[in-house]
Design a protein around this nucleic acid. Sequence first.
DNA 1: TAGCTCGCTGACCGATCGGTCAGTCGGAAA
DNA 2: TTTCCGACTGACCGATCGGTCAGCGAGCTA
Lengths: 237, 237
Amino acid sequence: MQARDVSGGPVACGCANPGAQLILEVAVELFSEKGYNATSMSEVARRAGISKANVFHHFGSKHDLYLEVIREACRDSREALHQGRDSGQTVVQQLSAFLHHHLDTLLRRDRVSRLVVREVLDSTPEGGKELAEQVFFDGFTELVEIVREGQQQGEFRSDMDPALLAHMIISISLFYFQSRNVLRHFPPVDFADEPQRFVEMACDLLFHGCLKAGDPDNKAAVGNRPACRTMSKETPE
Amino acid sequence: MQARDVSGGPVACGCANPGAQLILEVAVELFSEKGYNATSMSEVARRAGISKANVFHHFGSKHDLYLEVIREACRDSREALHQGRDSGQTVVQQLSAFLHHHLDTLLRRDRVSRLVVREVLDSTPEGGKELAEQVFFDGFTELVEIVREGQQQGEFRSDMDPALLAHMIISISLFYFQSRNVLRHFPPVDFADEPQRFVEMACDLLFHGCLKAGDPDNKAAVGNRPACRTMSKETPE
DNA sequence: TAGCTCGCTGACCGATCGGTCAGTCGGAAA
DNA sequence: TTTCCGACTGACCGATCGGTCAGCGAGCTA
């Protein structure tokens, strides 16, 4: 059920084959919509307008077809995470652009994104390695590098784990993507259908947490703090 | 496949029945592990040590059994989100405690949590309503209230959407929970198996973003900002 | 003791699953 | 023209799916 090897080549034939390509497109659609077990090979064949035997001719088994679908989806997701850096921008701008791009890609490729997220969710402790290496490593590493650069340039606090901020950035866009259907039904939430605005607000909130803008005596972890901290109370409205 | 009604009473019998209770426990386990389609009624019966017909005797259909499982899981999740507020604590402490409690519950009830998360992920635009109302509404509303209180008391910035911070808090613990198996394989990440430390670091990062500690001219959204802002550069190491 | 309810069973149902196989057919190579 | 190859098909396989049904037996009631 889980992808063991996301890196290998084609299973039965090259994807250049037009027949196999059609099957693959249909399969991406179905697996994304309904998951592995709920998708039948008969339905793949039916929707592709070919015989079931033909599907097995191109892809040795259902699992092989699924692996190919995962590879395709992962390629997409890797692109979503990987975004060319513009060194003319500040680090803050780069991260903001990253978030915009990431969420935009997630929403545009809704079904494929769901497929990959489901794969992450269902990954076993051992199986997560493949996904980590093949899909997310490059994008995540790049993100960490951006943060690290921000620290070296003094834009970001130096007493902060770069990987933590990177993780939080991804979690923000990914969880927004995941929870949108539920989020829409919460009365206090008005940004469920405004991803652009959401990203901007989230960036604002996030950056003012990692920028060196706070009072310097405030570096201790919050859990250990005795009370409300000495803080110049501004006008509460 | 999706839960349509999470609120109704028992389907075929009261849960007081010991036979039905055993079936339910086994079903929670299996549905959580393998999802709806990959779980067969035969396996439920086998693992419960009873006949398949007996399962259908207690729960009218597979879908009915699944609904009951979802109800049980949602009850758990609601408890995970809902945590008694200690009014003797500062708002910052309350939110920190909330995050600790939430993530701890997610990790402790790993399988059930996965089940609910999967349900959220697979929820249709219409179907998300039930989940929102029956499972997450109370907890989310409470979280928003805490944030709002923090704003009124001057601990938090007032130019911030309370629902946004609430959403980000949940996204942090939930995405950590989801991505741990993948996260473990990223070299720059060293907190994949230290949830306590992760929460503390995340709180630190998050709160210094929403506390009124930054320079006051920094309220504009980051996306619109022209350049790197005027910022007193501290010693970069 | 007779009658009834109810938890429970094994045998069975039609449908569908993933997968196989013999064979058709068109086009390139010989 | 023949041969061969590979895309492709319909018919079929055993296994398993969700679900049904007649009936068994223990326990309560009249």
